[in-house]
């Protein structure tokens, strides 16, 4: 049991090493959530390249930055910031939203 836990931790430590190195050298786009709106609401990214979205939540309430189209689902606590990794996208339009207020708070990414 202990052995297993130790092995898991080691594995976790090992696999995270390359991530630490890689996160820095890819493009990151900033999105700010304030009230019920994302700014910017429309993001243009080059197609075929992995990129990051930095989501900053300026509200008191937590949010969940989510997209079914590009498969991201991340909780953003109030007054904090997360980094979401987006796999290389094919040209097209992709929507994202705050899952806790999904009807009102939405945005679009265009990959071209």
């Amino acid at each position: 049991m202990l052995c297993l836990r130790g092995a898991l931790l080691c594995a976790l430590a090992l696999v995270t090493l390359p991530v630490v190195a890689r996160a820095e050298d890819q493009t990151a786009y900033q999105i700010v959530l304030k009230g019920k709106a994302f700014a910017p609401e429309h993001l243009k990214v080059p197609a075929g390249k992995t990129f990051f979205i930095k989501v900053r939540n300026d509200n008191d309430a937590p949010a969940e930055f989510e997209s079914k189209d590009f498969k991201v689902e991340k909780i953003v606590a109030g007054h904090s910031e997360i980094l979401a990794r987006v796999k290389a996208l094919k040209p097209g339009t992709y929507t994202f939203f705050d899952d806790y207020q999904a009807d009102e708070t939405r945005g679009i990414i265009t990959a071209e």
Partner: peptide
């Protein structure tokens, strides 16, 4: 600790936590 977890491992703490 949502915020702390998210920021761990240079921003992928939430994912690694879930995977683990």
């Amino acid at each position: 600790f949502a915020s702390a977890i998210a920021n761990a491992f240079s921003g992928v703490g939430q994912e690694l936590f879930n995977a683990a």
